[in-house]
Design a binder for these strands. Structure first.
Length: 615
RNA sequence: GCCUUGGUAGCUCAGCCUGGUAGAGCGAACGCCUCGUAAGCGUUAGGUCGCGGGUUCAGAUCCCGUCCGAGGCUCCA
């Protein structure tokens, strides 16, 4: 569909002659309108109701922007050389006419030759041209978003259950929450520099931009892959423990498959598309499709519920705007643990929601993200709040601090409740980590059913949880936290179980290499990652470099240590050197990494064998 | 998409304002040193100054255009 918009002082038109058989039946007479937005509309092949809705909401936006309340829809075939059939055009135009609440809407007759005279206003927004196509959902989402803002209100809910408007809340003790709350309106940013984690992810040889790919598609070096893999393994283990069953589903889908078409209209992410043998495929932006399509093939009884499916998507794709991509914080390809629970009724859903809330809190904690590092936001419809006050209050009191609330008068998206934990970085940027949603629409959309106690077929309620949020974003959070520590005079560090090297062994002279080699073997046998700096460099330099890599334990081996069971250990936490027996040391490390996955060193053990990574 | 900013050796950057032989540190190769808890020393190799055009006797430097990156804005159900 193509629309030419002109904000006019006046327009006058006279239908003169029917042009086609399907023309509207009217009595031709001259019409005159003043201060009106004239929308010349050409309906094209392939346009459908969704396009019409999209177009209408875009025009509505323009009307609001220029402060005009009168609209003339003017069918105008000459804007396109690929027109829809007249019957379709007529149908869509009449649908559009109904889509302007509170506006005075006129339409000129379809299928007539008309003479017209118009006077266009002279301001910059007076003229505009839009092309709306079925695959372009961005504008649609903008419209939905715009609508939701108008009909939602922001509040703060405290652990004691009190709910106050944002303006009435005292943020003195909750600065980060204030930042989160004002995030939408806070336009100013501190610095014109990239966030600290971008330099860190390169320096620590974790990840880097890959210029040969699309922006927001990162490459992970051996260190980064190790860290990422450990986090992935850990989150997966925890979800399995909670009761999620791990599955694997395709990363691309046919956008013309019936179950996708309606979902697209309500799920307006920007997707990557791929044309293959006439199919228009798109890359998934979440695991939802795969799991829903799978679950729709299950024959489920209420006795099977709640039933939980889990997938760690590597990757999910969202084609975010290029200007929005930053380091590991916001990507176009990311790794997302995604766990859906199918529940028989709202009571069960709320119970399940609670279990997943605990899971998410615990997972973040074990990943090294404390509850004081994030703030909680929760969004729900007014009805849901009124029916579930106690459950909502219980979540907030578990969090223990006031939370940001967005309350909708009515349901706009497919969920009635959504909560998320947001990490607010030192620049005041908020990023969601864990999240869960109560979805009351998609079961029906995807034909996911179960049979209840009374042999009735029903649609389950679906919860969408990511206990950690995107894995890349977890790494971003850990790096930003470390950078923040460093700014406050503390030594930056990763949690020990995620450190690419846990112990660095430094032989004082070449003659101790043999002992170091054996020592590294013994340490590795205790599932501890140890490497050896066997380069011909000064002892000072090698220690300095180990410190720069944030390595927690450094062992220098000289004549004192060689052949002895006592190790001389420099602990990054204290900066001091102490003597410890091998067994005590092994115990100290395993104590700190217990219940966490382990992976062996992912680099050559000897530093002399490692290529330098210049990034 | 808009605004800002950058592109010079493998990496980080200086030089550009005020035109005149292409610079430093790190890293790499080779050699010396064989070292006790945050940078030991020397030598060598390495550059179409993003690309295209213009002005000039002469352009990394001035002008125009263009490509690519980054940050901000919009955006982020």
């Amino acid at each position: 569909m193509r629309i030419l918009q002109l904000h006019c002082d006046s327009i006058e038109y006279t239908p003169t002659k029917k042009e086609i058989r399907e023309a509207e039946e009217i009595t031709p007479q001259t019409q005159n309108l003043k201060d009106v937005l004239v929308a010349f509309v050409a309906v094209e092949k392939g346009d459908d109701s969704a396009v019409a809705r999209d177009a209408a909401s875009q025009v509505l936006e323009s009307l609001k922007k220029i402060g005009c309340t009168r609209l003339l829809l003017y069918p105008y075939a000459h804007l396109s050389s690929d027109l829809a059939r007249p019957s379709v055009a007529l149908q869509l135009l009449s649908e559009m006419k109904e889509a302007f609440p509170g506006m005075e809407v006129h339409s000129s007759p379809f299928g007539w030759t008309k003479s017209y005279k118009l006077q266009v206003k002279g301001h910059p927004l007076a003229e505009g041209f839009k092309v709306i196509t079925g695959s372009e959902k961005k504008a649609d989402s903008a419209a939905l978003e715009g609508e939701s803002k108008i009909r939602s209100y922001w509040k703060i809910l405290s652990p004691d259950g009190s709910l106050v408007n944002i303006g009435d809340f005292d943020f003195a003790k909750h600065k980060k929450l204030e930042t989160l709350a004002k995030y939408e309106s806070a336009k100013q940013r501190n610095a014109d520099v990239p966030p600290p984690h971008v330099a860190l992810m390169k320096k620590l040889a974790i990840a880097d931009y890959e210029p040969a790919s699309d922006s927001g598609n990162m490459r992970f070096f051996p260190n980064g892959r190790l860290i990422k893999s450990l986090i992935e393994t850990y989150v997966t283990e925890r979800v399995r423990e909670y009761g999620g069953y791990e599955v694997e589903t395709p990363i691309m889908y046919d956008s013309e498959h019936p179950s996708m078409v309606s979902y697209f209209n309500r799920f307006p992410a920007r997707q990557y598309s791929i044309d293959s043998e006439g199919k228009k495929l798109f890359l998934r932006f979440a695991a939802c499709f795969g799991q829903f399509l799978m679950a729709s093939r299950f024959q489920m009884s209420y006795k099977n519920l709640p039933y939980r499916l889990y997938e760690l998507t590597r990757y999910s794709f969202r084609r975010e705007q290029s200007g929005e991509l930053v380091g590991l914080r916001r990507l176009r390809a990311f790794t997302m643990p995604d766990c859906h629970a199918f529940c028989k009724d709202m009571k069960q859903a709320v119970t399940e929601l609670d279990a997943r809330f605990e899971l998410s809190r615990s997972v973040l904690h074990e990943l090294g993200i404390r509850d004081s590092d994030y703030d909680m936001a929760i969004r729900f419809t007014e009805d849901f709040y009124n029916e579930n006050r106690d459950s909502i209050k219980a979540l907030v009191s578990k969090h223990g601090r006031p939370v940001l609330v967005e309350m909708w008068k009515e349901k706009f998206f497919y969920f009635v409740l959504k909560w998320e934990f947001n990490f607010v970085d030192s620049f005041g940027k908020a990023s969601a980590l864990s999240t869960d949603q109560i979805d009351v629409e998609n079961a029906e959309r995807y034909g996911i059913k179960f049979v209840d106690e009374h042999n009735q077929t029903r649609y389950p309620i679906i919860l969408h949880n990511s206990p950690s949020g995107a894995v890349e974003r977890v790494i971003y959070t850990l790096l930003e936290k470390a950078a923040d520590d460093s700014k406050h005079g503390l030594k930056p560090q990763l949690p020990l179980w995620l450190a690419p090297t846990q112990v660095r062994i430094i032989p004082l002279k070449e003659e101790f290499y043999g002992f170091c080699d054996a020592l590294a073997g013994r340490i590795s046998a205790c599932r501890i990652r140890a490497d050896i700096d066997d380069r011909n460099e000064s002892i000072g330099k090698r220690i300095r470099e180990a410190e720069k890599e944030w390595i927690r334990y450094i062992m220098v081996v000289g004549s004192k240590e060689a052949g002895s069971d006592t190790l001389s250990i420099r602990d990054r936490n204290s900066g001091d050197v102490r003597d410890v027996s091998f067994d005590d040391f092994a115990r100290e490390v395993s104590e700190q990494t217990k219940d966490k996955p382990f992976a062996a060193l992912n680099l050559p053990r000897d530093l002399s064998k490692r290529p330098q990574l210049m990034v």
